[in-house]
């Protein structure tokens, strides 16, 4: 187990390096620069600015400098928000995005597993068909459609919840739902599939023969093996939630990392965009690593 953990951690290094390299050179290959303005800057000032941000050095040297700084957790200064470093900007956005993402993932897993298990226990009956039709609707409605519709319904017409902005827990309800619903639907489909398979296996028949009730069979015996495909979906689910949070933060006016990303992209704020891509990339890679370790806990056949 320790050996595997170390190997996997080492394996994450090339992925991270590829991520940084791709992002760095893509941005430098783009036309236009961070100092493009309506009025051209005097050449001396522009030269000074370029020197201050090391943009006058050869590309390779800039790259080495950037990677070196990254290893110290320094994402460099933001080009657009002049007095802030990217690390500071990410740190400001992180609490909002983290709360939003974590709440959405928890809701997605709990809701999805519950709905999927419910459907599997009533396989091919009306309740099953109803849940699966709802799940199909859930994966077919993008969260940028869902979010405005939720605002229209619950904030504008019914006036139950605030339409946006940062505030108490009530402000998080609609964004979390908008972010979680498509993932609830995916997880429900995956759970139903694996639960159906597990419920038809021999050891479950044995458990039933012992006289356990349906819910006892599910909770004590079927849930754990049925969760394995769900756990493997957590990696892609996190990626989807992080991406989705970009639009959800934009629609609900939440000052999270996603909003900085969109603003930074539109303003050609190289270091900010890079910082967010690398940061989210690292989060996704770290989560995939945890997911792999999670298999060992759930599946007794997996031994590292």
């Amino acid at each position: 187990m320790l050996r595997y953990t170390v190997l996997r951690l080492l394996g994450a290094v090339p992925t991270l390096l590829l991520l940084v390299t791709l992002a760095f050179f893509l941005i430098r290959a783009a036309p236009g620069g961070p100092f493009d303005a309506e009025k051209a800057l005097p050449p001396e000032i522009e030269a000074n600015l370029r020197a201050a941000y090391h943009l006058d050095e050869p590309l390779v040297q800039q790259f080495v400098r950037y990677v070196g700084n990254l290893t110290r957790g320094d994402f460099g200064p933001s080009f657009q928000y002049r007095d802030y470093t990217v690390t500071e900007l990410i740190a400001t956005g992180l609490p909002v995005s983290f709360r939003l993402g974590l709440a959405a993932m928890l809701l997605a897993v709990l809701g999805g597993v519950a709905a999927g298990t419910f459907a599997a226990m009533r396989r091919n009956r009306p309740a099953d068909h109803a849940v699966m039709a709802m799940a199909m609707t859930g994966i077919s409605i993008p969260n940028f459609v869902l979010a405005p519709v939720l605002i229209l319904l619950f904030a504008v017409h019914l006036g139950w919840l605030p339409a946006g902005g940062l505030g108490g827990p009530a402000h998080m309800v609609l964004p979390v739902i908008a972010l979680a619903l498509p993932q609830i639907a995916w997880i429900a489909r995956i759970t139903r599939g694996s639960m159906t398979e597990v419920l038809s296996s021999d050891f479950i028949r044995a458990a039933r023969a012992k006289g356990l009730s349906d819910s006892e069979v599910v909770i004590r015996h079927a849930l754990r093996p049925a969760m394995i495909p769900v756990v493997s979906y957590l990696g892609p689910a996190t990626a989807a939630v992080l991406t989705g949070s970009v639009v959800v933060e934009e629609i609900f006016g939440l000052p999270g990392i996603g909003r900085y990303f969109v603003q930074g992209a539109l303003n050609r704020d190289y270091t900010l965009v890079m910082g967010v891509v690398v940061f989210y990339g690292a989060v996704i890679i770290a989560l995939n690593f945890l997911v792999d370790l999670g298999y060992a806990v759930l599946d007794p056949k997996v031994r590292y």
């Binding site: 990626a239 990303f261 050609r268 989210y280 990339g281 996704i284």
Partner: peptide, 19 residues
């Protein structure tokens, strides 16, 4: 596997912004 771990959506946004 390596490509799978990249946050691709962010790259597409980046590509659209840049080019």
């Amino acid at each position: 596997d390596i490509l799978y771990a990249l946050p691709f959506m962010f790259f597409v946004i980046l590509l659209m912004v840049l080019f």
